[in-house]
């Protein structure tokens, strides 16, 4: 351990654009340690819900549009699961690392900086969203609720959706004092968005104000892309939906970085 053999210029630090990667990898390694129960939940929960609601409720509902209720619901749950999983990771898990375990503080004594950490957390949360949505899609396919292989094109949309909700969640985490604070976000934004996001039932019969509200939020744009891709219906206004998701993602990522810098670098 002599100091002389080491010069800073030979340090194999990744280029700035890839410095989020060690943050992502750290979370991935922790996830791997508990991969068994994690995947059990990812596959088991949607299977139970799809069976119970899809067949149970589906018997009363019949079809929505031309889709059997199970098919309608499965594509909706793929979307809401990306939202819920990425949000939970960006709220509770990120807050634990930031405030309780001080994992971010440790990272900030290394060459990593706040944008690296926030970006790494967002991409990780999006990855978890992708895992859980993929599990639901597999379950849906086994139940015959996926039309064809075009459904795989939904996965990039799912990843973008996870990233979008992770960025929004990290903004909330950046200003949170404790876990209880997240209940405001969950109750006032997440739950309403899921209920009017065309996940469980279509929006057409709702009042105009509700429809207007739903279209101003990101989730329904995911559903409008993913449901046709999974069921073989025609896709419409692709770029509009992608633009809304990308716009939310960029704006909230920038805000999350700004607020985390204000909190951590005071």
């Amino acid at each position: 351990m002599d100091n002389n053999g080491y010069s800073a210029d030979s340090s194999p630090l990744p280029p700035p654009a890839l410095r989020w990667l060690p943050v992502w990898r750290r979370n991935y390694r922790v996830w791997l340690k508990l991969v068994g129960p994690a995947l059990m939940g990812n596959f088991g929960e949607p299977l139970l819900y799809l069976l119970a609601l899809g067949y149970g409720l589906g018997t009363f509902v019949g079809t929505i549009g031309h889709l059997p209720y199970l098919v309608f619901l499965a594509s909706g749950m793929v979307c809401s699961s990306a939202m819920n999983t990425a949000s939970f990771e960006g709220l509770y898990s990120a807050f634990t690392r930031m405030d309780v375990q001080k994992t971010w503080d440790a990272m900030l004594t290394t060459p990593l900086s706040v944008p690296d950490i926030v970006l790494g957390e967002a991409i990780w949360a999006a990855t978890k969203g992708l895992i859980s949505s993929t599990a639901i899609m597999v379950v849906a396919a086994l139940l015959g609720a996926v039309a064809d292989w075009w459904a795989l094109l939904a996965l990039p949309v799912i990843f973008l959706t996870g990233f979008c909700f992770a960025a929004m969640a990290l903004v909330v985490t950046a200003v949170a004092r404790n876990y209880d604070f997240f209940m405001y976000y969950n109750t006032l934004l997440m739950t309403p968005m899921m209920l009017i996001g065309s996940v469980f039932f279509p929006l057409q019969e709702m009042p105009a104000a509700i429809q207007w509200l739903a279209w101003s939020l990101p989730l329904i744009h995911t559903v409008e892309l993913v449901r046709p891709l999974m069921t073989g219906l025609p896709l419409e206004q692709i770029w509009l939906h992608l633009l809304v998701l990308a716009g939310y993602s960029a704006a909230f990522l920038a805000l999350a970085i700004r607020l985390c810098e204000r909190r951590l670098l005071a």
Binding site: A8, S11, L13, R26, V30, K33, Q101, K102, T103, D105, A106, T109, T110, P111
Partner: peptide, 16 residues
């Protein structure tokens, strides 16, 4: 920070 080491006041080792 590539060239310094920091031992924080409270250990922030990764419990996982």
């Amino acid at each position: 920070r590539r060239r310094i080491g920091v031992v924080p006041q409270k250990d922030n080792l990764d419990p996982d």
